[in-house]
Structures are given as structure tokens and as C-alpha cells.
Design a protein around this nucleic acid. Structure first.
Lengths: 234, 234
DNA sequence: AGGCTATTTATACACTTGCACAACAACGCC
DNA sequence: GGCGTTGTTGTGCAAGTGTATAAATAGCCT
């Protein structure tokens, strides 16, 4: 029995109790945005748990608490759903990452340290998010759409880093040229990315705050900042 | 017509030319190791190109120049083939990465620089290898076997880094404690990993050797080494 | 209350997937 | 050369896959 029918099976005289037949699943109508978000979340959950291969429409629908057919009512096809899910993931990641930069009344150096700390702790250090990132980015080589989405996210992130670095160095009365600045941004970005991966894949190997401390020290070394004690973590 | 049959279709009196019927595919018997390697390579190619979802037994077999049924003769199931393919990939990656460390007649610092340079240029900087790495590692969260394989590879790599770092610092008459050494290794590992990703995903944004130069400078800063000019790249 | 309509379910369908197995033929051995 | 072994092919099959579509009903409007 691999097709689950509730009604149309055995068309002639086989149902012993025709009275209770119409039992159809109860449902509620949700708002359009709510449904789309639920479906996207369910998609990300499915991908994180079973990979792209295991994220079938039925699995996704089950997780979202609806039936598979409904997906087609909101998305033209599975590919579109995956695209939107990836876009949503990237949006949340960069949003969270950049949120740590909007600090009032803080020196550039403090803002940089806070940025690094935010990126190297929960919720950005998270195995589920990493799995999603890796699963999607693994297809960037073959899917130009994904590749462009990544490139934009990456450059946006790096530009943020470069801007803070410029402020930090300016506060130190240093005037780096454009290429020097770019190299610093690339290196710092690499440090954050690399530590992020290590934390996501083997978080329990590091004590709380350890990755952030390592990252801040490495970045300060990269920028040639004296490790002043006034910037210890609270 | 969705099933391609060559013989058994239409069992009675439908074949106009029964003479040419037995045309069966010619084949050669390869050695066992050769076949296994070919199948593993075809698997990696398929995964790199279409992701885990697109790597079907038929696709893999087609690429290996055999028919799908043969795979079952060498591997108990698809999952086993994927496991072995991942193991082979990791083996080649770490092998290449460590190969740069076995230099005779070189100072520790030169060996470190060569190690970084090797890891941040072709063939280790390679989009296909990155796609494979990301695709597999994305399932590490759900698959304990993959997670352990990664952990072992990662720790092995980091221990290599730590050993070279110890030599470099020893040559500078510095005696770091164990925790300091560990932090250096983690940071340097992150720098290499981060730059590796950037290079794989957007290699054309960097001029040749640029990533290696950035990496070496960042690592020397992390270790507090004076950027002596005698270590320029040839 | 009762109808309208768009959301939601249920089902159908063509096709794919991993696996099973029988038939076949390439190659070594006598 | 013939023969047996076994690597290899061809084919079948149940369980899914994404998509299409008819049927039902939830909830709003009047």
C-alpha cells in the first residue's frame, strides 16, 4: 500500500460503513504572509535536517502542518520555494550580523569588538544555520543565481567590515590607502568566517567566549593595535 | 515512452526485425580497484555538479561508463558509496594540504609560509572541491559519521599547524604555553579556512598570490613576527 | 442566515529512484 | 579450443517525486 487514499479506492461496494466516509481534515485559513513564512520556515527546517535531497514537498508540508498541494498555491514550483527560502536565510544572517554594528556612544574599536563578539556567539554560531549555509552554498558553483546571491551578501558584509576598520584606524590617527584597507577587510572577514565555521562544527571544543576572544586578538594583531586592557570583555 | 526497453517489451509478435534483436552493450572487465576508484570519482563529479540530490545511481553509472546495476556489485548501497566518496575526498584534501609541510633545508618560518601559500592557491583553491566540501559538511549536523570524519580531519590539520607554529616560535626564542599555542593554531586555522572559502567562491576577485600574501601577513601579525623582507615570495 | 470565493485538501499521474535478479559475455584456466 | 567463473548488462518493481486538478470548506460580505 503505497498510495494513501481515503475515499476513491475500491469504487464498488467495498466500504462497510459508508456513513463515516467524508471525514476530511479540518483546517484553518491563515493570512497569506503567515502561510508563506511558515512554508519557508518549514523548508529551511527540512533542508537543515535532511538536506536538499530529503526536503520533499510532502516533508515540508507535513512540517508546516498543511498538505503538499497547498505549496503550489503559494509557490510556482519547488525551485521557487527553495530560492525564497535561501533568500530569507541570507537576509536573516546578514541582518543579525550587522545589527551588532549599530551602537551609539561607542568608540570604533569597541564597535568592532562588539561586532566580532556578536558574530562568534549564539545565535549566529549555530549548527543548524551552518548546515543550511553549507547546503545551499555547495550549489553555488552550479547555480549562478545562488552564486550571485552569495557574492552580494559577502561583499555587503565585507564592506561593513571595511567601514569599521577605516573608523578604527582613523581614530588611531592612521591613514591607510585603499588597497591596505581592502586587505585588512579580507583578512578580518576570513578570521570571522573561519572561527564561525569552527564554532558551528565543534562548538563544544571551545569555552564560552573563547572564540570571540581569539578573534578579537587576531584582528587587533592584524590591524596592529596595541592590546590595551581597557577593552576586556565584561 | 518512459521506460526504455530493448527486448522484453510487447511479448507477442510486434518486433518487425527479430534478427538484430540481441544487440547488447559491449563491455570490458576492469580490475576491482580501478572500478571502485572510477565509481568514486564519478560519484564526486556527480555530487559536485548536481548536488547530493542529483547524484543518482544512474547518473553516476553513466559518468563512470557503466550501467547502474554494476554499482551494487561493488557497494552494498548508495549510502556506502557516498561515504567512501567523502572519505576519499577528505583524504586527498588533507594529503595535499600537508604535503607542503615536508620541506627539507627550510626554516620553520619558511615552511609555514610555504604551507599557507600551498593552501591558498590551486589546486587546493578550487571551486569544485569547495562545492563537494560544502555539500558533504552540510550534512555533518545530521550525520554523526560525517561529523566524526570532519572532526578528525580538522584536528589533524590543526595539530599540524600547531606543530609548525611551535617550531616558528621556538626559532624566535619564544616559549609559549600550551593554551597560547592552541589559540594561535585556532586563529591561524581560521585565517586559512576563511581565505580558502573566499578564494574558492570568488577567486577572480583576487589577483594571483594575493590571498596567500594576505594570509601570510595576517598570520605573521597573529604570531607577532616582524615582517622581515627576506621572506618575500619568489 | 446564506451565498461566494479563495484557501485548503485529496487524489491522479507521469516519471524517477534505489534496489533485486536473471541473463549474458569477457576473460583466465585447463 | 572449450569451459566455468564472475563482472556486467538489462529489466522489473515498489516506493517515492513534483506537478496538475477536482472537490470541499472556512470565513468574509451583505
Amino acid at each position: 500500500m503505497h498510495r494513501l487514499r481515503r475515499r476513491a479506492d475500491m469504487p464498488d461496494a467495498a466500504d462497510p460503513a459508508p456513513m463515516n466516509a467524508p471525514s476530511r481534515r479540518k483546517f484553518r485559513r491563515e493570512g497569506e504572509e503567515r502561510r508563506r513564512q511558515d512554508l519557508i520556515d518549514a523548508t529551511l527546517d527540512s533542508v537543515a535536517e535532511h538536506g536538499l535531497e530529503g526536503a520533499t514537498l510532502r516533508t515540508i508540508a507535513l512540517r508546516a502542518g498543511v498538505t503538499a498541494g497547498l505549496i503550489r498555491h503559494y509557490f510556482p514550483g519547488k525551485e521557487d520555494l527553495l530560492q525564497e527560502a535561501y533568500a530569507a536565510l541570507m537576509g536573516r544572517m546578514t541582518e543579525q550580523a550587522k545589527a551588532a554594528l549599530v551602537m551609539e556612544n561607542a568608540s570604533p574599536r569597541q564597535r568592532l569588538a562588539a561586532f566580532v563578539t556578536a558574530n562568534l556567539n549564539a545565535p549566529i554560531i549555530d549548527q543548524r544555520v551552518f548546515s543550511l549555509w553549507a547546503t545551499f552554498i555547495g550549489r553555488a558553483g552550479a547555480d549562478p543565481t545562488l552564486a550571485r546571491a552569495h557574492r552580494e551578501g559577502y561583499l555587503g558584509f565585507r564592506n561593513e567590515v571595511e567601514a569599521v576598520v577605516a573608523e578604527v584606524l582613523a581614530a588611531e590617527r592612521r591613514k591607510p590607502d585603499a588597497n591596505e584597507l581592502r586587505h585588512h577587510a579580507i583578512a578580518i572577514n576570513a578570521i570571522i568566517d573561519g572561527l564561525w565555521i569552527e564554532g558551528c562544527l565543534a562548538g563544544e571544543m571551545f569555552s564560552p567566549g573563547e572564540l570571540a576572544a581569539i578573534g578579537i586578538k587576531a584582528i587587533e594583531a592584524e590591524l596592529g593595535l596595541a592590546p590595551e586592557k581597557q577593552f576586556q570583555e565584561k
